[in-house]
Amino acid sequence: MSAKIYKNIFLKVSEIEPEVLRRYMLSEVGEKAKDKLFNYLRDLSESYPDFENWFYNKVIPEVGSKKGEREIIVVVSKIEGHPQVILTGIAILKNKEQEKKICTFRIHEDYRDSGIGSELFEKCFEYLGTRKPIITISSDRKEMFENHIKKFDFFETEVLKDYYKDNTIEYVYNGLLTNKK
Rank of each mutant, 00 (worst) to 15 (best):
135 I>V: 13
133 P>D: 08
95 N>E: 05
143 E>K: 13
129 G>V: 00
165 K>N: 14
167 N>R: 13
101 K>H: 05
134 I>D: 07
106 R>D: 00
95 N>V: 07
122 E>N: 10
133 P>H: 01
109 E>T: 14
133 P>S: 08
130 T>I: 03
88 T>P: 04
112 R>H: 03
152 F>K: 01
161 K>G: 00
123 K>H: 10
146 E>L: 11
102 I>G: 02
150 K>G: 04
153 D>R: 15
140 D>K: 04
109 E>R: 03
144 M>S: 10
156 E>M: 10
159 V>M: 09
159 V>D: 06
109 E>L: 02
124 C>A: 13
154 F>Q: 10
135 I>W: 02
98 Q>H: 13
169 I>K: 14
106 R>K: 15
124 C>M: 03
110 D>I: 02
142 K>D: 13
127 Y>K: 02
124 C>D: 04
123 K>T: 02
89 G>E: 04
152 F>V: 04
100 K>T: 05
148 H>W: 05
108 H>W: 12
118 S>G: 14
88 T>W: 11
164 Y>G: 12
111 Y>N: 12
95 N>W: 00
138 S>E: 09
89 G>V: 08
150 K>S: 13
155 F>K: 15
125 F>N: 11
95 N>G: 09
151 K>L: 06
128 L>E: 02
123 K>Y: 04
99 E>W: 01
147 N>E: 11
119 E>C: 08
105 F>N: 07
133 P>R: 00
118 S>D: 14
133 P>F: 01
103 C>Y: 09
145 F>S: 05
116 I>H: 09
